[in-house]
Computed example of a mutant assay.
Amino acid sequence: MNGLAQPISNFGKFLESLRGSMSLREAARKSGLSHAYIRDLELERNRSTNDKITPSPDTLKKLSAAYGYPYTELMIKAGHLMSGDIVPAASFTDVSIELTNVYFIEIGAKEITYHLEGNKLLRSIDSLIDFSTFLDKLEENEFKKMDTDLYVNFNQVRRYDDKRGRLYFDEMGKGVSVTISAIRQRKYHDLLIRKAAVNTNKSLEFSFGRSTGASSALSGPENNL
């Protein structure tokens, strides 16, 4: 990047315009956020402390789904991304993405973001038929749903921190990571341990289920974030 990303002027007003005639309580119901917090975001300050606030990427994802506005565009307008960080769909329409090289995929309201090593690729969701085929293809390539809109390539997971619910795509655990929901962590716990071992050519020297801290040997020291 050539500089730091900056939010647009009056981003809170922009969020309020996206909500339109929708009531705060309706927006809260659709997004899973509290109506008070949504209003704070629109005012760009915490009304209890008067501190300036900026929505996190996770919050923006929820608002994207509630308002039907592209997640990536919200990220750019909020200052989390620069437009240069994303390769526009039109620039690689005819280029096939090799799923085996993709770390994880985020599915927004209208687009799909592929995260690879040092790169992000964006494509729009053209139709439900294409999207259904796309999900089938993900399953065939060992992508697992880790959160509402997050699919992780288990063949790329090289470190699993079970205490934080975090997956890394490098063995040292210092690079890109994703946080998974608790319910998915319970469902895939043993498989994640196995995959992290296989992907780093390590052997499993414990019996599954014998110790809840068994994966710690793979997740490494607590200070590796």
Rank of each mutant, 00 (worst) to 15 (best):
Y160S: 04
R184D: 03
L191V: 03
D51N: 14
K195R: 10
G213V: 02
T100F: 05
K202T: 07
D85V: 05
L138E: 01
T59M: 07
A197N: 06
F11Q: 06
T100Y: 10
N224Y: 13
E98I: 11
S177P: 06
R164I: 03
S48I: 11
L192D: 13
G165N: 08
N141T: 01
L43G: 08
L191P: 04
T93S: 12
A109P: 10
S56V: 04
R45F: 07
S31G: 07
A109I: 12
S83A: 15
Y37Q: 07
R186E: 14
S34R: 01
Q185T: 00
A217C: 10
G165S: 03
E222R: 14
Y69K: 05
A90K: 14
I193V: 08
A27I: 01
I53N: 04
A182F: 11
T93M: 14
R39L: 13
Q6P: 06
L204F: 02
H115I: 05
K202G: 00
K110P: 00
S34N: 09
E139K: 15
F169P: 00
P221N: 11
E98L: 11
M82N: 15
D190W: 06
T212G: 15
T179R: 03
I8A: 01
I97R: 01
D162L: 12
H80M: 06
E117S: 15
E139F: 05
N141H: 14
I105E: 10
R210G: 09
V95Q: 13
L150K: 02
Y69G: 01
L74K: 06
E98D: 13
K144W: 12
S177R: 10
K137P: 01
A36W: 04
M1S: 08
Y168P: 12
I129E: 15
T200H: 08
R159F: 08
H189K: 12
I180E: 00
S64Y: 11
G118R: 09
V198N: 07
V102W: 00
S211G: 03
K145N: 13
R47P: 01
F11L: 03
L122D: 01
S48T: 10
N155Q: 09
I193F: 05
H189I: 04
F11H: 01
R45W: 02
L167S: 00
D40W: 09
E44L: 02
S83T: 13
K62A: 12
M22V: 09
L225Y: 10
P57S: 05
L116G: 00
A28D: 03
N155T: 09
D85R: 04
T200E: 05
R123D: 04
E26K: 11
D126Q: 12
A27Y: 02
D130R: 13
G32V: 07
R159W: 05
L122M: 13
N101T: 15
I38R: 06
V176Q: 14
D85E: 15
F206D: 07
D85Q: 15
L4E: 13
L138W: 04
I125L: 03
R39M: 11
F206S: 13
S9K: 14
D147N: 06
F134K: 02
